[in-house]
Nucleic acid binder design. Structure first.
Lengths: 197, 197, 197, 197
DNA sequence: CATGAATGAGACTTCATTCAT
DNA sequence: TATGAATGAAGTCTCATTCAT
């Protein structure tokens, strides 16, 4: 693509965000040096600064780049034919691959963005989005009479998300992925059975 | 040879570990400077190096310092009169306060200790310990005929721990602690009801 | 061979010199970036290098561009009807506006051009030119018997120029322009009265 | 001096300020690198940052370091036995050496400190101080009936200072120091004669 | 043993200049 | 010839670690 075309700049940004995101996930924010990003993208350090004012700006751009993705994720839930699908290994795998393509909000990142209220809000909204999407799905199913639950839809949604996050966490601590997937299926099975009474 | 010296040295190490742990939890490993630790302990930077070879060594010592604590935690589970107690808000609160007094194994810390197989193993053992302790408790109750469960005790244990970690995670992202505690109680209630059939 | 090209080139150079001069005056040499100049002129950074080999070359060209102007300035003195006019507020204001349209030789600029003997000589010549012009004017008036002075014409000229520069300097340090103009008028009045005895 | 003594720190700061001041005067602010300062002082770059947070802080400290000096300068005026002494070559030389030991407020420095209202005020106060001191001296002499002047004491003071600054400026542009000194003596002679009528 | 000043490697960032398009 | 993205040298600043006192 010719460099004069305005889309080129957007494309270059995207590329940097992509590589930075990957590196941040792998090595963490602090341990990722501008040099690493530049080398990964295949340009000089200076070039990066044509697209981002600072390393910190890159982090923000990376975080923002997942906004669209998050919407997409949640919609995947909504497209599901019924809650039962949630309790499958396939669904768990899908979630996992989504996670791998996004940036985990670690304490380090929270600290780095601390003070930036916009981003903090953005992060919290993102975490709300899953909750809300799942809750809406459940409420929808209740409304059409497909299910009835003994606990509030919000609590159920919150529990499901916590289970997901906790299991994901265990993976990074070295847990066996098959055991983890199985746990998801079994525990979700219990929760679903309870929900669909 | 005076006995005081080694004891004093041990005491000094303990103090440093304590303060470092607190700072690592609060600000993260990278953002905690040697100066911060020295100031917190109330000694000079140079003095720290009499007890630890490097900042990284302090981290390892901090991690190791929780070995005893972890045993203690798990034993708290075992002292519980039955599984039902697990599904209470009181129990959730107790776990929470335990967490606050220990060092969360963040990605940043995993990265910092990467390459040190001993520590990695140690970390994984720690995460296993909870799992094992909970599983043993469940198995014990099954054995005495108090409960019978439809899923394996390991899966149940794994699910409970994931729920705990996921909920804890949501707290750091700004979730309301009362809602989170309630979710613990309700979801655990379902799991327990299912388990104790 | 088309004549247009060299003329166009000259025009482009002139434009760059003009804008650069303005920026150098406003922000200083170091703080003026090539980007600033390019933006001010309305061309790309790269284009500038078609007309000047370096930023430093632009500075030299800017300095040289005032050669003609300086002659003009001095001639304005000579056009004056008698010395008395020098001691007026109008004259002071005219000088001031001339200053604003030229580049003040600051220490920064002297340092930047240090080592370039041609330019250093050129700068000193420029400062001599005022002195000489003023001296010539005074000498001319003495010759025609209009005035007679108790000190040498060179000393008087030097004093007048110093007064001008010192007052100008005080302006940049925040002095009130009316007070400064008044000082010019009053002090020059004394000097003139003394001169014209 | 032992490094633990608190005075040592003050001494180190003083040393840095001294060397920095010299370098700023010689090469200008921007062209003086932290490396230059460190090398001049004879320490590593990092050491400087134990005493000053930034290069810009050093500049401020340098500026402030002349507060005492400025008071001293002005008092020198007041100690003068009568105005006549002002119009001597000795006095000119004394002023010159004072100048050489302080930091000239160049446009570059004004730009660097722009935005820092405290410093701007400080700079303007400094320039006021000379004016005020000189004016007070003149007023004092008028009061005791030693002199009477045809213009206001402020205007005279302002003119004298401008003359001084303008002559000093001509020196940095290569003027001959003897001619400049002579100009001071002669022009001041005229002004004094006028003042003391 | 303790102190804290000094070190120096290395991080982020800037910007004059070059060069592919 | 014009563009502006890329380069890379160099500058400011940080901080774990060392070491003279």
């Amino acid at each position: 693509m010719p460099k004069v075309v305005p889309e080129y700049k957007e494309e270059a940004r995207r590329k940097i965000i992509q590589h930075a995101s990957h590196l941040f996930s792998e090595k963490g924010y602090t341990r990722t040096k501008m040099t690493d990003i530049a080398e990964s993208v295949g340009v000089s350090k200076g070039a990066i600064y044509q697209y981002f004012e600072s390393k910190s700006e890159i982090l923000l751009a990376v975080l923002e780049s997942y906004t669209a993705l998050r919407e997409l994720e949640v919609r995947k839930f909504l497209n599901t034919k019924g809650l039962k699908f949630l309790a499958t290994g396939d669904f768990f795998d899908k979630m996992l691959s989504l996670r791998k393509n996004s940036l985990l909000i670690t304490p380090e990142i929270l600290q780095e963005t601390a003070g930036n209220m916009t981003v903090l809000k953005w992060i919290q909204d993102g975490s709300e989005k899953w909750l809300q999407g799942l809750k809406d799905l459940i409420d929808g199913l209740i409304e059409v009479g497909e299910i009835s639950i003994s606990i509030s839809s919000e609590v159920l949604a919150r529990g499901i998300i916590a289970l997901r996050d906790g299991l994901y966490n265990s993976l990074s601590l070295g847990a066996d992925v098959n055991k983890v997937r199985n746990t998801w299926v079994e525990i979700m099975g219990i929760l679903m059975k309870q929900a669909l009474n």
